[in-house]
Design a binder for these strands. Structure first.
Length: 472
DNA sequence: ATGTTC
């Protein structure tokens, strides 16, 4: 592998072997994955071999090893030139994402009530592997509405306010959902989990705005210094996982019929325009809408908990997905082309003026939400013109040590005590889960965000720090 | 990420 530094924040892997396009890694030298400990650059190279891929196989500064595709990867295929869709390029947690709520109160006003609020959240927010959701969906017919209309359906039946939808990507639901492509098993897994965090790196945090970098953008997003916020990070639970498993299996069987060979069987894929490709895209859209309804229901549960301890309103700042593929039109080699843009552990970051943005956000660009690691900072960013990788940026800190490695070196109890000693209230579910998500297992989110900004992928708007963690 | 191995 020949890797060339093109700028302090951009490295290029020249095409060789089966690569159809170069690899482009947006990273500082310090953040470049170490090939001895992380195979993600090998995965960037594998992705560059996908049929129909255009421009480059991209990696964001938080890139790390994942299923087939790296987490922190962006790859676009030309769907009118037999370009493929691959479930591995979206990930098992379809539409895993983040939403940020801004409270109408400042830190000092909340601190006397924080313990009570955290206890209320502890009781109200379902989480962990086996947890049921806050919403008891009445049955298959109602779940179908969730799959078709996501957060929009949740709000229609009273779980939220109309303004929430103006602050969701795609108005709270993406088009093209096909519930018939979601297996009975996926539906069964999904029925009882709407309104639950899940486990792993998912969390709900009470945060405070610690720093503003861009006052005009912060004002447009409704953020000011010392303000209390809530960040919710979760995905599509068992339903999304089952959708991914089902369609990976279908595509593994279909690939030879399309004459497709890939360097790693975890890159199983099919032309986006084939029956298998369209089936996955329809099921993926349904799972995406499920995740958006999930975050909407957790928003309502959070509002109820706040209402018992404060008089503050919670306004939705924005809701983003960081595991999804989208059909978008971009100019490639001087021609407008319809592309299937896979973003896995990467966030869409629309530039100022993009027609998809609500009018009041258009002057500043799309809000981008970056969850940090437990006990560290989280960030609000904004999209910028230029858009190095189909208008995408990073999604989080990025793991550098496996769960297993983290477990060996960190005690969950000690970590909880350290966080509490720093004034962060912790409501966990398991000591093991806490240890696996220790900040020492992740890259430095401040460095990741600075690198994304330095690479011209986004700009910083605000830095948030946690005062309470509800851990999945 | 995940009824943490159909």
């Amino acid at each position: 592998m020949k890797i060339v530094a093109e700028s302090p924040y951009r490295f290029r892997i020249e095409p060789f072997g089966t690569m159809r396009v170069p690899g482009v890694v947006f990273a500082s030298r310090a953040l470049l994955p170490d090939p001895d400990h992380d195979k993600s650059l090998e995965q960037v190279i594998h992705v560059a071999a996908l049929p129909g891929i255009v421009r480059a196989s991209y990696a964001m500064p938080d890139v790390h090893w994942g299923y087939g595709f790296p987490i922190g990867g962006v790859a676009a295929t030309d769907i009118d030139a037999d370009g493929v869709i691959s479930p591995g390029g979206v990930g098992f947690d379809i539409s895993c994402g983040v939403r940020l709520l801004a409270a109408g109160l400042d830190r000092a006003e909340l601190v006397p009530h924080l313990d009570g609020l955290m206890d209320a959240l502890d009781r109200t927010i379902p989480r962990g592997m086996h947890g049921g959701g806050v919403w008891h969906v009445s049955g298959h017919r109602e779940l179908e509405h969730v799959l078709r209309a996501g957060a929009r359906y949740a709000v229609e039946v009273g779980h939220g306010v109309a303004r929430d939808l103006e602050r969701c990507e795609d108005g709270g639901a993406i088009a093209g959902a096909d519930p018939d492509r979601v297996s009975a098993r996926a539906v069964e897994r999904g029925l009882g989990q709407v309104g639950s965090l899940g486990s792993g790196n998912h969390f709900l945090e009470v945060q405070v705005v610690a720093e503003i970098y861009d006052e005009a953008a912060a004002r447009a997003f409704g953020l000011h210094p010392d303000q209390v916020c809530v960040m919710i990070h979760c995905g599509s639970r068992g339903l999304g996982h089952q959708v991914c498993s089902d369609h990976v299996r279908t595509m593994e069987a279909a690939m030879s019929r399309y004459g497709i060979t890939v360097p790693d069987r975890q890159l199983a894929c099919a032309p986006a325009n084939s029956p298998e490709g369209r089936a996955y895209l329809g099921a993926m859209a349904a799972a995406t809408n499920y995740a958006r309804a999930n975050r909407q229901l957790l928003t309502e549960a959070t509002r109820h908990a706040f209402a018992r301890h404060t008089t503050a309103e919670l306004d939705l700042v924005y809701d983003i997905s960081h595991n999804v593929a989208a059909i978008e039109t971009h100019e490639v080699d001087g021609k407008r082309r319809r592309l299937c843009v896979h973003r896995k552990g990467a966030t869409r970051a629309l530039p100022p003026g993009d027609p998809e943005l609500p009018p009041d956000l258009a002057p500043v660009g799309q809000p981008v939400l970056i969850p940090g690691t437990m006990g560290t900072a989280s960030f609000v960013l904004a999209g910028v013109a230029g858009g190095g990788a189909f208008h995408s940026t990073c999604h989080g800190a990025g793991r550098v040590r496996s769960r297993h490695q983290a477990l060996r070196s960190v005690s969950g109890r000690r970590l909880r005590d350290e966080l509490e000693a720093r004034g962060i209230a912790v409501r966990g579910t398991s000591w093991r889960g806490l240890a696996e998500e220790a900040p020492s297992a992740y890259k430095d989110v401040d460095a990741v965000v600075d690198t994304a900004e330095g690479a011209g992928l986004c700009r910083k708007v605000a830095r948030l720090v946690p005062i309470g963690v509800v851990k999945g």
